[in-house]
């Protein structure tokens, strides 16, 4: 039997609390360095993009309105009267996409997280993730080849049915007035965008709904809630900030989407709500893509200026979303 060799009162024994270098310090510092550097890196990238946009857009921002007369694709307009319709087109296509995609995503997310049998839910989850990986040019092709002919009869009906006709006669033009085939209008573009952003929103809200603490769900059920009441009482309020974040992710993609809009939409530079008429709207991103190859001189600056405005718009929308989330932070369930 071994006996403990050094009694605790041995004055020669080294102190129990180590002084100086300890193993593991280096790893700690390296990791802290890496994560700090990554955090700074993203700020630098953001600043670099902002500075690039600002510097390159500056000549267009300060140019006299008459200077743009030589830029062919601006159709003789000055910068602001050229950008506003594009901004409007970007906003309206994104709003259409969100109005369609968000409720649908919440429905699919809830189905996967709370209604579907487990195996079906898993399969559906993978499928949704796969959908998110489809490139937008494919969605553009799909929109032209498949969706346009499909929605055309619906649009015809929307445009010509009795209610629309009555409103046109007695009140004035409606948002459905004047549909012309093929359906290369802003509503079709919005629908294609909706399908595009559906997977990312669905995947995010599904995860959020799955995070609902079981305790809260049981609390609701034990009070005599049906499943739908439980979802309204426990799941949706808990997932509120997550749903807003997911919507912002989708909105970010819709605002910046280039290829699908470029392929589907017949462009125009007007501000109006004729969702079914071609040649009325255009989005900033699609507009940059379509004119950049031929642009030169001030035209390039003007396009970059429109990009700057898109950047600011996206930034602003995200700030507002953050503010909405933080407004009710104490009720978020995160505490």
């Amino acid at each position: 039997m071994a006996v403990a060799e050094s009694p605790p009162s041995d004055p020669e024994a080294p102190p129990k609390v180590r002084v100086g270098r300890t193993p593991g310090r280096l790893g700690n510092r390296v990791f802290q360095g890496i994560s700090t550097a990554s955090g700074i890196f993203i700020l630098i990238i953001l600043a670099a993009v902002a500075i690039f946009l600002l510097v390159r857009a500056w000549p267009a921002l300060i140019a006299a309105p008459s200077a743009f007369e030589d830029v062919g694709f601006m159709l003789g307009r000055d910068l602001w009267s050229w950008v506003w319709p594009l901004l409007f087109g970007t906003a309206i296509s994104s709003v259409i996409a969100l109005v369609v995609a968000v409720p649908l995503s919440i429905g699919i997310g809830l189905f996967i997280s709370h209604y579907a049998p487990r195996r079906l839910a898993q399969g559906l989850g993978y499928l949704i993730d796969l959908l998110a990986a489809i490139p937008s040019v494919i969605f553009g092709l799909w929109g032209i080849q498949w969706l346009q002919p499909l929605v055309s009869p619906l649009f015809t009906w929307l445009s010509t049915n009795g209610a629309t006709a009555w409103l046109e006669e007695n009140v004035g033009p409606t948002i459905f007035t004047g549909y012309q085939a093929p359906a290369r209008n802003i509503l079709t573009a919005g629908l294609v965008l909706a399908i595009m952003i559906l997977p990312i929103i669905t995947a995010t809200v599904r995860e959020v709904f799955l995070q609902t603490p079981r305790l809260h769900e049981e609390a609701s059920l034990a009070l005599g809630a049906t499943r739908w009441e439980m979802i309204r009482q426990a799941v949706l309020p808990f997932g509120r900030s997550g749903v807003i974040s997911a919507t912002m992710l989708g909105l970010g993609r819709a605002l910046g989407e280039t290829m699908a809009v470029l392929m589907v939409l017949s462009p125009g530079y007007l501000i109006n709500f004729y969702l079914l008429q071609p040649g009325q709207h255009q989005s900033i991103a699609a507009n940059i893509a379509s004119h950049f190859p031929e642009a030169s001189g001030l035209g390039v600056d003007a396009l970059i200026a429109s990009g700057l405005i898109l950047f600011i718009m996206t930034f602003g929308v995200n700030l507002i979303a953050r503010w909405i989330i933080s407004r009710r932070a104490e009720f978020s369930g995160a505490n």
């Binding site: 809260h216 609390a219 609701s220």
Partner: peptide
């Protein structure tokens, strides 16, 4: 469950 209420092991008021 309307007739038979329940209190759980861990307090679970709705945080929202």
């Amino acid at each position: 469950r309307r007739q038979v209420g329940m209190v759980f092991q861990r307090p679970n008021p709705f945080p929202t």
